[in-house]
Amino acid sequence: MSRKTRTRLANLFFRDIPIVLFLIFMLFPFYWILNTSLKDSIDVISIPIQYWPSHPTFENFQGLISLGFDRYFLNSLFVATFTTIIIMVLSLLGGYAMSRYRFKGRTVVYIMLLATQMLPAVVLMIPLFQTMQTLGLIDNLWSLVIVCSCTNLAYCMLMMMGYYNSVPVSLEEAAQVDGCSLMGGIIRILIPTMAPAIVATGAYAFINAWNVYVYAVAFINQKKMYTLPLGLNAFQGEFGTDYGHLAAGCVVALIPVLVIFAFLQKRMAGGATAGAVKG
């Protein structure tokens, strides 16, 4: 057996086949959701199992609109967008301070930020509900924006701190020597340099806010204020589950996340590891 053949066989068994198996394993649930969403209510439960619908139909997607799913989509978009904006502004500035300044109690602040990540959502749910009730924000999407921002901010700030640490201070100093203010240096020099990192952090914040469920159950009562996860849960009733609409709803809910990954994956791949090693 030639060396070339050996290399090809090694690549086949240790690279190509594992990758294909991994892809099948990862993508099968997504394929199955899509497959189910295109079936009518009879085909969904038909035996033998249909691996592709015999009569593909978009009636489940059309049905979503009559069930108010368009509203849920816009509500989720509102929460995720504003949460991402708030988190990005605050974590850019907070991360810079944590990275560049040496102040008294810095370590304590760092530990406190980490400690906030140790509390599960269900523990915070009751006190946060009471706070939102006092603020008159029950059944208001801003309650979710505020809570998602608060709960994700610490982690995003620490991510940003890592990215700032990887950018040499001399870059900023050079900008300031050339006449930039502190804020000007951050905006004109650091942010463009850290674009992949910012995109990764923003995507993290967006996806977390997009999927928020526990707080949404607590703060939202009225259907017109439902976000997508609440809307999806409504398809699972006391005496049956509407699998067709549930699958169609999942496909719709996946779209923004897939779009983010499709357009930003190159930047995210770089950004996710940018702060891992201090330069």
């Binding site: 009751i126 509900f129 009730q133 849960n233």
Partner: peptide
């Protein structure tokens, strides 16, 4: 009239009981 998904209701009402809402 306010309705809830069957799966959410137990938690929702439990929460309301605790917070007297």
């Amino acid at each position: 009239y306010t309705s809830f998904a069957f799966k959410d209701f137990q938690d929702k009402f439990q929460n309301a009981v605790i917070t007297d809402s």
